[in-house]
Nucleic acid binder design. Sequence first.
DNA 1: CTAGGATTCAAACGTTCGTTTGAATCCTCA
DNA 2: TGAGGATTCAAACGAACGTTTGAATCCTAG
Lengths: 225, 225
Amino acid sequence: MSLRAVKPPHETRTRILDAAEELFMQHGFEGTSMRLLTASAAVNLAAVNYHFGSKDALIEALFRRRLDPMNAARIAALEKAETEAGGRALAPEAIIRAFVGESLRLMEDAKGGGRNFIRLLGRTYTEPAKPIRALIGQLYAPVTARYRVALERALPNMPRDEVVWRMHFMFGTLSYTLAATDAVQLIAGFKPEDRHDARLLEDRLTAFLCAGLTAPLKSAVKKAA
Amino acid sequence: MSLRAVKPPHETRTRILDAAEELFMQHGFEGTSMRLLTASAAVNLAAVNYHFGSKDALIEALFRRRLDPMNAARIAALEKAETEAGGRALAPEAIIRAFVGESLRLMEDAKGGGRNFIRLLGRTYTEPAKPIRALIGQLYAPVTARYRVALERALPNMPRDEVVWRMHFMFGTLSYTLAATDAVQLIAGFKPEDRHDARLLEDRLTAFLCAGLTAPLKSAVKKAA
DNA sequence: CTAGGATTCAAACGTTCGTTTGAATCCTCA
DNA sequence: TGAGGATTCAAACGAACGTTTGAATCCTAG
């Protein structure tokens, strides 16, 4: 037993991952060089390749670290709601809250770096690089499939295609909102301080998404179904 | 008068811009090198710097070429709706259709490259590079301000902050949907052929956005207002 | 026809990128 | 305490990047 602080099992790895989350969020994957990244993490330039193998492998590890528990939490939240509902069909709002809630919880975790990650994740949905998109899609697949089933049960009268489209719209709203940075001022008059009030944001998002998800079908869409 | 075809006034410029739209959409700004870009446009490597000055200036020119007329069309569509309504307040759906319609019209223009641009634009909302985001925000400012006023008139009982938030959500849904590529399969079971049917998509989007925009306020949000 | 600006071209510039190397150092366990 | 694997380190690698250069070519106006 040494007298020094408890030995950090993977201190270098963790410092790299934390710095990467912040820098990737700020400058993107291609816009963040290994030199800036390792300097910011206060580790040697070769450390990333030693611990992760390559920059791409670092990106993958970064997503897995956060996404695996987040996905598990999302599925758990859904199943908890289903258990509480007994055998009855879930209200759309309950499903939305289960899904949105987990993102916002991470967003409130500014100190643990969760906010950096959630904003990074939001912008990665539209990442041009194919391997990264493929990774995200693969990591997300079980969650989306699970929520899709739940939504189809909750909206029994809606065509299956329409449910998928509205899930798509929902992801868009969520990821765009999460990705928004203080620098984004597409709409003038934004009050940035509100954005970090997760409780308020959850209510705003839920109201919007819930109404959108359960909106009556346009006749043209009905005909196409 | 020469016997050859009518001389193209800026043929090289146009070829570069068209190739850039496609490649930037596929690989992003940083992911597209000048060598790939000029080779794809069948022009000399130095042509971009000669005609535009730099890669960044090319990006700006690219956005201006499409965004300026698109913004003008969006404002014209809104004012046309307002004229038709006489003095009466506009229905939220009319405002949404004015806004969404222009994007989708460009999306149907696959041959003229409009589709490439609209997908590129969708993903640029979350672009990490600050100068590009700033440019987009600046080019968009008049449009967002104009639509904001229209929405506030159409939703007189909604707190101003909430209107801004819901505009924000609306942009998110739209840009994410437009940015979606065939490679994005976050939700399994997507029918990609539907995505290019602009008429159908407009109805789907309008139904979703309209309901979201006019959704009743959550009590917690009401209290904060 | 020809002078002169506009455009294209091949080649090279300096910089930065992700990665690799091999020696130096640290830490653990016998 | 000392051997040996794990980790860190400074330095360098080749490749790719955006940009610049100066000559060659094209096009047009007088």
